[in-house]
Amino acid sequence: MSLRLQPVRVETGSGDEDGRLVFRDDALIALLVRLSDNHDADSGKWFLEAGFGCVAQERNPLFEDLEQAQAWFATR
């Protein structure tokens, strides 16, 4: 099982555009978006914009960096 992150530009309707498609093996499991400077203390963190299947959450989490996000995916 391997995780792969692919850069993507996301049209969120806000300044948050820098995204990563997250693949586990060949399957898309999530979309992460880096929060822009408009989010005060959370600026720069990575937001689970969408999670599919076993990474779906009722309130999507924030990660300090991509390493922390990948560690979280590895536990799901």
Partner: peptide, 18 residues
């Protein structure tokens, strides 16, 4: 507001900005 409207705080912030 997020807990009231069933959204994440990120979506609340974006929506307030919009």
């Amino acid at each position: 507001l997020a807990d009231t409207t069933g959204m994440s705080a990120v979506h609340v912030n974006r929506s307030l900005m919009e």
